[in-house]
Amino acid sequence: MLNYTFDRRYTINGTLRYEGTNRLGKTRSARWLPTWNISGRWNVHEEKFFQSLEPAFSNLAFRASYSLTADRGPSDVTNSEIVIKSYTPWRPTAGDYESGLEIETLQNRDLTYEKKNELNLGLDAGFLNNRINFSADWFTRNNFDLIGIVNTQGLGGEISKKGNVAEMKSSGIELAISADIIKKDNFSWTSNFNYTHLTTKITKLETQARVIDLITGTGFAQEGSPARSLFSIPFVRLNNEGLPVFINEDNEETTSGIYFQEREKRIF
């Protein structure tokens, strides 16, 4: 970690970490990963020209940071090596017992960390001897190597397994205002206002969900859509036979043709 400040006006920080875990694959790119962060701050209120702005302005500073951070992923992803468990095989007579071993999860040595690049720009300002304070932050993030379920053809004995299958971009803004409305020796009144807006978009997803997965109502992933989006099949009415009528992908009314096991990329 490196920290340097010049004349109380300019500050730069740098951090370097070397992450390591034995819960992922054996390869060096999976088990070990350097992460870092660099940030800076300009205290404008320490500049000589700032005195001409007082007392209307009492504090002003600009901040910026850029980083690469990582996470080992979901806690249930632990199969850097094959996972074998014991079980009791079935026998036709209840008195016959023996122990057996079976593969619970195949080795998954290609998994690596979930990673994130983030750029953050910030502003801090104070007015009227800091009785009013304002801060604003804008950030953009690029998440990649995100871990999710991969549906396979069953080669190796697993129909589905975990893999680094997704990428996501997000950006947002955070605003905060606090003010000392009343400030006396025996009484004070402070008000705070906070506003946050965040947008996300899945830019890459190397797996496909079934229609039934997308419309469960708990949120699911779809390339080109926000994270944990909610989907539904447009319902029109019940026909004279009591069957539900839907709008299909061709914008036509239908009572059939909707296959809930379908894995084509359709957005309803």
Rank of each mutant, 00 (worst) to 15 (best):
R91W: 02
I149K: 09
K169L: 10
L155F: 12
N3V: 04
L123P: 01
W32V: 07
G224W: 04
L214D: 02
N22I: 02
Q261L: 14
I181H: 12
R109P: 12
Y259T: 14
E104R: 02
L155E: 13
K204M: 09
E46Q: 13
A30W: 04
K184M: 05
G14H: 03
N240T: 14
P244L: 10
S170N: 09
R63A: 05
L198H: 11
G172Q: 05
T199W: 06
L155W: 07
R91V: 03
F246S: 02
V211K: 08
W138H: 14
T5Q: 10
D7S: 13
A94V: 14
E98M: 10
S229I: 11
G172M: 08
T5A: 10
N251G: 04
P74G: 09
R8F: 03
P92G: 02
R109D: 15
E98C: 03
R228Q: 15
S67H: 09
G257A: 12
T196Q: 13
Q222S: 11
L2C: 00
F187W: 12
G95H: 04
E206G: 02
L121E: 07
K116Q: 15
P226T: 12
N239S: 06
A94K: 13
K26C: 00
K115G: 11
F49Y: 13
I103Q: 13
F134P: 01
S58C: 06
R31F: 00
R28G: 10
E252I: 05
L155C: 00
S52R: 15
F193R: 03
L243F: 03
S135M: 04
N192V: 12
S191A: 15
I103T: 14
K169N: 15
T152E: 10
P34M: 07
T78I: 10
N133C: 00
T254D: 11
L2N: 06
I181Q: 08
I132T: 12
R17Q: 11
F220C: 09
P89I: 01
L60M: 11
K162H: 09
F127Y: 06
E102W: 01
L123K: 00
L2T: 04
I38G: 06
P74A: 10
D76R: 15
S170M: 12
R17T: 03
L214K: 06
G73Q: 05
L214M: 10
F57A: 09
K204I: 07
I82E: 14
S178C: 00
G20K: 08
P226G: 14
F268A: 06
R8L: 05
Y195F: 15
T11A: 09
E19W: 04
R17V: 01
N248I: 06
E174K: 07
K265G: 05
I147Q: 06
V77F: 03
I215L: 02
E54G: 09
I12R: 01
K26M: 07
A166S: 11
A209Y: 11
